[in-house]
Each structure stands twice: as structure tokens, then as C-alpha cells.
Amino acid sequence: MPATYYYEDLAVGDEWDAGTVSITEEELLEFAERYDPQAFHVDEAAAERHFGGLITSGWHTAAACMRPLVESVLSDVAVVAAAGVDDLRWREPVRPGDALTIEVAVVEKTPWNDDRGQVSFQLTATNGDGDVVHDRTDLVVVERRDDTDT
């Protein structure tokens, strides 16, 4: 299936509601035990002392937000590769049972050559209270149309 959006089709200010992702305690513990076994992610007592209960690893939060980004936005874009992530932040703790709403916007475009350009997608995740819990800028290399000199 051909991409819907090429570099030229995307504009700064384009926005998407990428949906939601829920964090379960089981997934939180599994991820933390495997990749980020800090006490406040895997030990209820330690987490209680510092955060009032278990919190999700920021890396888990970032990874969990990737799927809605891909399914709701990037799957329709002529993506070549990722060039990196800027301004990655974890603003508030994410807890078991939280459902995160993911919003995405194009915030910058940089042409590279006749074949590709970089599109910066700002991702913002909010919890059920409307608090921003995670945000970042994904730097995505996107194909340019073959038939354009833009």
C-alpha cells in the first residue's frame, strides 16, 4: 500500500489524535523487571515512600506511546527511518491503570536532498486528569515525491 503522505504533503501545524494507550500493572512490572529494575518501578514499598505507589518506567511510557504514533500517523507516511528524538521528557508519573491520550503535531520540516526530508513530530501524552505526562519530538526521515522539485 503506497504512503498517503510524503514530505511535501505534510505541513507545520498538521495535527492528529493518535488515540489512547493503557498501562497495566502487569506490563509495568514486566517491563521494569526486564529493562529498568529501579526500586520505585518494581518494589511497592519503595515506590510508596517516594511516589505514593508504583510508577511506570519513563522508557516504558515512551515505548507504549510509539504504537499509537505508528498506527495513527506514521503508517500513512512514507517513512525512511528515524533520525532521533529531541526534548524527551517525563513530566508526571504514570501509574498502573492510567490511560494516556496521545496527540501528535508536525512542528518542523527540513529538506535534506531531492529524495528525502526530515519531519519533526511533537508527541504529547496526557493522563485522564489532563496532565501532560510525557512529551518528545520524533525526528523522522520521510521520502519526497518522485515527481516534485519542491
Rank of each mutant, 00 (worst) to 15 (best):
G130L: 14
V106F: 09
A3N: 10
A18V: 14
V42I: 10
E71A: 15
S57W: 09
H60P: 06
P93W: 00
L100D: 03
E92C: 04
A78L: 05
R145D: 00
A11Y: 05
R91C: 15
D14F: 05
V85C: 12
E27S: 10
E103L: 10
P37G: 03
F121D: 06
C65M: 08
D98R: 00
D135C: 12
A99L: 01
V77A: 12
D86C: 02
I102P: 01
G52L: 01
Y35M: 11
H134D: 12
D86A: 14
D114E: 14
G58A: 06
D36R: 11
A82Y: 07
A81S: 13
A63Q: 05
R136P: 12
D135R: 03
V106Y: 04
V21T: 14
L28R: 10
D98E: 01
F40T: 00
A46V: 15
E26F: 08
W90N: 00
R89I: 09
A47I: 03
R91G: 11
P68M: 11
E92N: 12
E48Y: 07
D87L: 09
V80F: 01
T24W: 12
V85K: 13
R49Y: 15
N127R: 05
V42W: 02
T4H: 05
F31K: 05
T137A: 08
G52N: 02
T126S: 13
R89W: 04
R67M: 12
R116A: 11
L74I: 12
V119M: 01
A3I: 06
A18L: 02
L54I: 07
D86L: 10
S57Q: 03
T148Y: 02
V133D: 10
Y7R: 05
G128W: 07
P2A: 05
